[in-house]
Simulated scan of single mutants.
Amino acid sequence: MKTATTYSPEMRARAVRMVREHQGEHESEWAAMVSIAGKIGCTAETLRRWVRQAEKDAGQREGLTTPERERLKELERENRELRQANEILRKASAYFAQAELDRPLKQ
């Protein structure tokens, strides 16, 4: 199985720019993506996703912008951590409540 390759933001921006600049030289946007993807070493689908995200970031397409996606990811992580902390506190509370019931009364 092939490992994922990480491309720099500069490389992604350059590839998106190339698609926009050379789109008129091809019969379709997809054909431009296939051609450019082969030259930069990524798949056409990867390049298509970069182009679509750039369109969202520019307000040309509906969807979450990159900063919004990052913020959402951060909030989901924080939510997950808080749920875990609440579960730990719930279990600790139940444990100590039971321990209190099991303790003999002082007279």
Rank of each mutant, 00 (worst) to 15 (best):
102 D>A: 15
25 E>S: 13
32 A>M: 13
71 R>Y: 04
63 G>Y: 08
43 T>V: 14
101 L>G: 01
40 I>A: 04
48 R>H: 11
55 E>K: 12
95 Y>W: 11
71 R>V: 00
100 E>H: 03
54 A>L: 05
18 M>Q: 12
50 W>S: 08
35 S>F: 14
49 R>V: 00
28 S>Q: 04
21 E>Q: 14
65 T>W: 04
18 M>H: 06
87 E>Q: 13
89 L>H: 03
97 A>I: 06
45 E>K: 12
92 A>N: 11
21 E>W: 05
82 L>I: 13
70 E>S: 09
79 N>L: 12
41 G>E: 00
35 S>D: 01
86 N>L: 13
38 G>N: 13
77 R>N: 05
62 E>R: 15
8 S>V: 06
6 T>S: 10
6 T>M: 11
7 Y>G: 10
14 R>D: 09
85 A>Y: 02
47 L>P: 04
83 R>D: 00
8 S>G: 11
81 E>A: 15
38 G>K: 09
31 A>Y: 01
15 A>Y: 00
65 T>A: 09
98 Q>L: 14
104 P>R: 07
86 N>H: 07
43 T>S: 15
83 R>L: 15
104 P>L: 02
43 T>R: 09
10 E>D: 14
4 A>N: 03
93 S>D: 15
62 E>L: 13
23 Q>I: 12
96 F>K: 08
60 Q>T: 09
12 R>L: 05
71 R>S: 08
33 M>Q: 14
102 D>G: 06
76 E>Y: 04
89 L>I: 15
55 E>C: 12
102 D>H: 06
8 S>M: 05
59 G>A: 13
85 A>C: 03
59 G>K: 10
53 Q>G: 08
87 E>S: 12
85 A>V: 09
89 L>C: 11
67 P>L: 09
83 R>V: 14
11 M>K: 14
60 Q>G: 08
90 R>Q: 12
64 L>G: 01
13 A>Y: 00
13 A>K: 11
84 Q>L: 08
80 R>Q: 08
57 D>P: 04
37 A>H: 02
73 K>T: 10
70 E>G: 04
100 E>N: 03
9 P>F: 07
4 A>P: 00
47 L>A: 06
44 A>T: 07
20 R>C: 08
79 N>T: 07
64 L>Y: 06
32 A>H: 05
63 G>R: 06
34 V>F: 00
17 R>W: 02
95 Y>I: 15
57 D>L: 10
9 P>C: 09
69 R>F: 01
22 H>V: 05
99 A>W: 00
15 A>C: 09
93 S>V: 11
14 R>V: 05
101 L>K: 03
13 A>C: 07
22 H>R: 14
78 E>N: 11
42 C>L: 03
75 L>T: 07
49 R>E: 01
53 Q>A: 14
2 K>Y: 07
89 L>R: 09
107 Q>N: 08
68 E>K: 10
38 G>Y: 02
81 E>V: 15
38 G>I: 06
48 R>G: 04
28 S>W: 07
